[in-house]
Computed example of a mutant assay.
Amino acid sequence: MITRTELEKRNISLLVQHQISHGWLRPSQLGLDKAILDATIPFRDFLLEADLHDFTRQELGPDHKVIVPAVLMHPTGQLVESTASLYQTKRGDRRVWIKNLPDIAGAGDLVLCIRRGNGLGLVNASRENLHDSLILADEASSGKESVEPPPVEPSVFPELFAKLKTVAQKGFIAAPVEGSTSVGRLLESELGIQMNSSKTADYHGIEIKSARSGSRRATMFAQVPDWTRSAYAGSGQLLNAFGSEKAGERSLSCTISAKKANTQELYLQIDRDADLLRIRQNELSPREVVLWDMAQLQDRLMSKHAESVWVEAAVQRIGDQEYFRFHRVQHTRNPRPEELIGLIRKGAVTVDFLIREAGDHGYLFKILLDELSSLFAHSKAYRLA
Rank of each mutant, 00 (worst) to 15 (best):
D352W: 04
L301V: 05
S285M: 08
H378Q: 06
R328E: 13
L375T: 00
I279V: 15
F365G: 02
R328L: 09
T332I: 01
P337I: 00
N334F: 10
G359D: 05
E288L: 08
R328A: 11
G359P: 08
L343P: 01
F324D: 02
S303N: 06
H305T: 04
D271H: 09
D275S: 15
K380G: 04
Q281D: 02
W310E: 07
E338S: 15
R345I: 12
L369A: 12
Q321D: 10
S285E: 09
H305Y: 08
E357T: 07
K346M: 12
L343D: 02
T350P: 05
L340A: 02
I318H: 12
R383Q: 12
H327K: 09
F353G: 02
N282R: 06
D299N: 15
R356L: 12
S303D: 04
L375I: 01
L340E: 02
A381T: 15
E339T: 12
E357Q: 10
R300G: 10
L297P: 03
Y363I: 04
D273Y: 14
S308H: 00
F353E: 02
R317Y: 13
T350V: 13
R278K: 13
L291H: 03
S373C: 09
P337L: 00
L368A: 14
W292F: 05
F324V: 07
E371T: 11
H378V: 11
I341P: 03
G362R: 00
V329Y: 01
K380L: 11
F376L: 05
N282M: 10
F365I: 06
F324C: 06
K380T: 11
L364D: 11
T350D: 09
R336F: 04
P335I: 02
L276G: 01
N282E: 05
I344V: 14
F365L: 06
M302A: 13
G359C: 07
R317I: 15
F326P: 08
G347W: 01
F353Y: 08
V311T: 04
Y323M: 07
H305E: 02
Q281L: 01
R356D: 04
Y323H: 13
N282K: 05
L354C: 10
H361I: 09
Y323L: 10
S374P: 03
Y363P: 09
A295C: 03
A313S: 04
I344L: 13
R278A: 10
Q316W: 05
D352N: 15
M302P: 05
Q321S: 14
L343Q: 09
G347Q: 00
I344N: 02
S373V: 08
E312D: 09
P335E: 03
I279L: 04
V289P: 09
S303R: 11
E288M: 10
K366I: 02
E357C: 02
Q281I: 14
Q296H: 15
G319C: 01
P337K: 00
N282L: 12
N282V: 10
I367T: 05
R336C: 12
V289I: 13
Y363R: 06
I367N: 03
I279D: 00
G347M: 00
F326C: 03
H327D: 15
D275I: 12
W310H: 14
H305A: 08
R356N: 11
S303T: 13
S285R: 11
Q298L: 00
I341W: 03
L276W: 07
H331C: 06
L375F: 00
V349Q: 01
R278P: 06
E338W: 08
E322H: 11
G342P: 05
E339Y: 07
S374E: 12
